[in-house]
Design a protein around this nucleic acid. Structure first.
Lengths: 198, 198, 198, 198
DNA sequence: CATGAATGAGGATTCATTCAT
DNA sequence: AATGAATGAATCCTCATTCAT
């Protein structure tokens, strides 16, 4: 008797993630997934309750990875709020590069029942919000709504990677986003707007 | 007054836009659209070649509206680059508020065959890129990659509106995004970052 | 534009009834039904909400027919309770012969959600129970539980038709069941048959 | 004590019988049976060649039991034909009460390939037919077609138990069926119960 | 023997599209 | 032009059966 094969589960997950990354939810058939993972269609149901559950698992695992990765990097970092934000952005970009699926999967569609996606997305947004919030409380960042800022920051990276020119090296994306971000949120930075409402 | 045909076409578009805004492409059936617009299913094919064409038309018309609206506002504006950027952001937020469908429809998925969406999206990104670029060339904005910046800015607004807390007044969103944006991109603004830019 | 075609609906119903009569619920595929009725599979869904609804409709219509038929015969009948019972049995047998499907469909399986079948079956059982009950109240029949008797009588006819030797003429079945019903099987017990056994 | 194998086989049969009694053939999965019997799905195939074979075994064993039980009771009984019929009816009712599955399993559907069921059912019908036939030959019962009568009698009991009011005590069912059987339903017809409970 | 992971044929159902009216 | 009945391809999912362990 065989035991549930973690390797096989992983293979299914990987194949499915790649497919979902390039086609919308309903554009991916379980036949595609099964064929891609070289398993029978029925086998998918041994590891996932339904197509939706499979999709949810992909999102969940991906988000868990980003969040875990970023949090691990944060542990070793100095306490500087800006430095921590840099780590966050770098983590997001690195992840977007390694798993191009990610940011596409994050589309705001209501593809699958809300809870699944909200939960997955929330995990990441919470992390960013926390980092921003701590920076604010520490007096290093100027920002009144950490929640709004979190959405902006993640979206910003997402926008740069999805809509920016293809093939841009990650370093450049990181640099650009940080550039925009830095002088925006660091206290004491903003000069008076040049000619604001004369 | 318009010809009855145009009215019906408009009704179909409006209903379909509302539906596509709340459900993913494949979650909307032409039956839903027909019922919502109080026309027969066959009638849809009098006005649109296919479901995909209908979806494309929605995107196109919506983007045409934002772009037209923003460009109209820009015409009367003073030449200041920042002021022009303010107009752009305000236009985006106002539009996102008036047509919540919009930003959802912009999901990065490859819901429908690429060209349609790229074309539609491009129109908006081009506008923003142009405004940023002009500002840079005029020496008022600091920004090396106007294309990247355009993606960031639009995404930023989108992120704030889609993922931020619900029911936030538009003014606050505008203020927040502009706040982040201003001191970031306006020349001469950035104070020395805590430990950066030695 | 075509209107819902009553003839087509009838054809589907007839074909499906024949199939369900010879194979159990799950042994009949909608593909079979569609092919048999020479319509597309999708067409079935124009006329019936689901397979289960189709099955329910068959039962309902069949029961409506028996019950209507029997009730019509009862109207013209003299008031004699036994005569009325004869009419009932004759109606049941005639129906079983004309629609062999009927008694098979009545299998007590829980094939489809109870309500549908119970409702359909109830209509017939109620009729029989009513006739028996009236006879008892009129003092012509002896029977304490009209409800039990109704189940017995219908089952009896069913048993005779389904399990008895094939090809037996209806007249003989009617005669036999009525014989048992009227005066039982014990010799010397029965009252003189009202107008039978000359 | 039996060998462990026999115990397991018995457990499977018992569980399966209960399931088949409440759901139609295709509504019972081997997964259900395996889970209910606390064995692996593969184990079922050690004891039964297929699902159909399992179903057939249930029917066979059940029928063997009724028939054996009734025949055992008949052995000790006096030779009176009516008394023997009473024993048959009592046996049927008792069995229907103890194994509610039975009468449900006897659905006339062609659930599984005919031979299996016909064989099983035949065993019971033959017994009843034999008893009736002997009574007729002995001049105690009046009945021209013992085969038809057998179907009627078994069906009658089945109908009373399946369609009659729930929870009716067995004694009442027996009494009712015997009442109808003995002297029919027409008032004044029936002789006093021959020798009922002297 | 026992097991349960693996399989793929098969089935109900949906829906974009066509077409007769 | 307008309609909605008709269609069948396509999809998710179930489940009896097999087989490696």
């Amino acid at each position: 008797m065989q035991k549930p094969d973690a390797v096989k589960r992983e293979r299914i997950l990987r194949v499915a993630a790649r497919l979902f990354a390039h086609r919308p939810y309903h554009g991916v058939t379980l036949g595609d997934v099964a064929a891609g993972a070289r398993v029978g269609k029925g086998t998918l149901y041994v590891y996932f309750r339904s197509k939706e559950a499979l999709f949810g698992a992909i999102l969940d695992e991906a988000f868990v990875r980003v969040v875990d990765d970023i949090e691990a990097s944060l542990i070793g970092a100095s306490g500087g709020a800006w430095e921590r934000l840099e780590i966050v952005v770098r983590g997001l970009v690195k992840f977007g590069g390694a798993y191009p699926a990610m940011f596409r999967l994050m589309r705001a569609g209501v593809d699958v029942s809300g809870p699944i996606k909200r939960r997955a997305r929330t995990r990441l947004l919470d992390l960013v919000e926390r980092v921003v919030g701590e920076g604010v409380r520490a007096g290093e960042l100027r920002e009144q709504r950490a929640d709004l800022a979190a959405g902006c920051i993640v979206s910003c990276v997402r926008g740069a990677m999805l809509f920016g020119p293809e093939g841009l090296p990650e370093r450049e994306i990181v640099g650009h986003v940080l550039g925009m971000l830095r002088s925006g949120v660091v206290r004491g930075s903003g000069a008076a707007p040049p000619r604001r409402k004369p």
